[in-house]
Amino acid sequence: MEYVSPEGLRLDGRRPMEMRQLRAQIGAVAKADGSAVFEMGNTKVIAAVYGPREVQNRSQQIGDQALVRCEYSMANFSTGDRKRKPKGDRRSTEISLVIRQTMEACILTHLMPRSQIDIYVQVLQADGGTRSACINAATLALADAGIPMHDLVTSCSAGYLNSTPLLDLNYVEDSAGGPDITVGILPKLDKVTLLQMDAKLPVDIFENVMQLAIEGCKAIATYIGEVLLENTKQLEYRKGL
């Protein structure tokens, strides 16, 4: 299968180093303390954050820091087949864990002892790169909720098909079975907080692909920064400042 034509175009018309179109909207769920919708091409994810609030189950309370919980799910209509998506299966448990760990690493949990932060992410439409989109949406929602963080985590994936590193795989490219790296970074601190790959790749190629994913994360960080700034301006405007 040819995923990159000799003319250097991918199946959807992008070039190897190009990302899909990004869209973000802050405050999609009024009831939540913070919420956001994040889109990467046809992948669309909604995130809602509640907290910091009192710990519901006292036995889970942590004395010196906040408890971060995360629940990931996929809407039944998120893929073309509209099948009922199981909750709590291995895949979603694993993704919940990945998102929780990634977010926990950037939240200043020690500032909010004995409290609880709940992050809910749901995939509304899946077209590859859901993991990254979830993390980006969660970051925006956390920022919207005003939860103190070290930095804004952003995430992006990159793959390697037809001997070419490709940024931000869509569903077709994702199902090609090639290596697929998901990276999460703290752009200001220049630190990698998430790195996932479930394939074998020679080290030199791996470094190239990972570098590409990091570049993608940085671009998303810039975009998220702009979105937050724009949102703040709107708030200022509404408050008449």
Partner: peptide, 11 residues
């Protein structure tokens, strides 16, 4: 019959 949605980036 399944509806598949594909993006096309026009350049």
């Amino acid at each position: 019959v399944q509806k598949l949605v594909r993006e096309v980036y026009l350049r």
